[in-house]
């Protein structure tokens, strides 16, 4: 039994900033799709749900090549809904449970991801932060004490050494059907315990090039895929 029982990958969106005409989850990074790296990290999680919308058939086919037991949650309104709304669709029937949420456009460092999962033990919430700041950052304002790092709020304007890293364990009830960004919704529940992760978010061509360069330099970064 894994520490985390439920995980939701939000992979419904259009990825318009990158403009490859495919969902970002299906972008190839050094021979594997982003979603394949993610599914590998989630291999011990029993209940994995993938929210699909844009090019849903292609996303479903890619996921099924990796594992047969994923629940696909359809969001046909993906063009007009937020990531938070996609997550809500997948988690609305999981009341009382905690859910690991991740964005379909991020490659996580396998070792730090494993640490994150381990830190989820005995907790109902944990948010991820990264110390590599992107071009369009969502800052994570933090406080640190003997128990570790705590996020006191996320912000686009108040700078910090840390950024929101699109991965969190949250009670399913946090995931409401609202048009706000996920980080804004989570801010409402701050302070939240935090854990650092390494992640390569793929928002732009430059991000993608950096992500590929990293994996070429360090092929085991995202895990040892079969």
């Amino acid at each position: 039994m894994s520490i985390v029982g439920h995980a939701v990958i939000a992979a419904a969106g259009v990825g318009s900033r990158l403009g490859h005409g495919i969902p970002k989850a299906l972008i190839d990074v050094c021979g594997r799709l982003i979603i394949e790296y993610q599914l590998h990290l989630l291999r011990d999680v029993e209940d994995v749900r993938v929210v699909v919308g844009y090019h849903e058939r292609a996303v479903i086919a890619a996921v099924r090549r990796v594992r047969a037991d994923v629940i696909f949650v359809r969001n046909p309104a993906y063009r007009h809904t937020t990531t938070l709304q996609s997550l809500h669709l997948a988690a609305r029937d999981l009341r009382g449970k905690s859910v690991l949420i991740l964005d379909g456009d991020t490659v996580y460092g396998a070792r730090s991801f494993a640490t994150f999962l381990e830190t989820c033990r005995e907790r109902s919430s944990l948010v991820s932060i990264a110390d590599e700041i992107s071009e369009d950052p969502v800052y994570a304002n933090t406080a640190e004490d003997a128990d570790g790092i705590t996020v006191t709020g996320f912000s686009r304007t108040v700078p910090s050494h840390y950024e929101w890293a699109n991965l969190a364990l949250v009670p399913a009830d946090y995931l409401t059907n609202d048009e706000t960004p996920v980080f804004e919704r989570l801010s409402a529940f701050a302070p939240l315990p935090a854990c650092r992760v390494e992640r390569l978010e793929v928002d732009t061509e430059k991000d993608l090039a950096a992500c590929r360069a990293r994996l070429e330099r360090d092929p085991g970064f995202a895990g040892d895929l079969p």
């Binding site: 037991d69 629940i71 046909p76």
Partner: peptide, 21 residues
């Protein structure tokens, strides 16, 4: 498929989903 809220591909997965509904 186009009317569905969920799509699943095996019996055990279906039951896991149904248990939450």
């Amino acid at each position: 498929h186009e009317m569905a809220d969920y799509v699943v591909y095996d019996g055990a997965t279906l039951c896991r989903l149904l248990a939450t509904l």
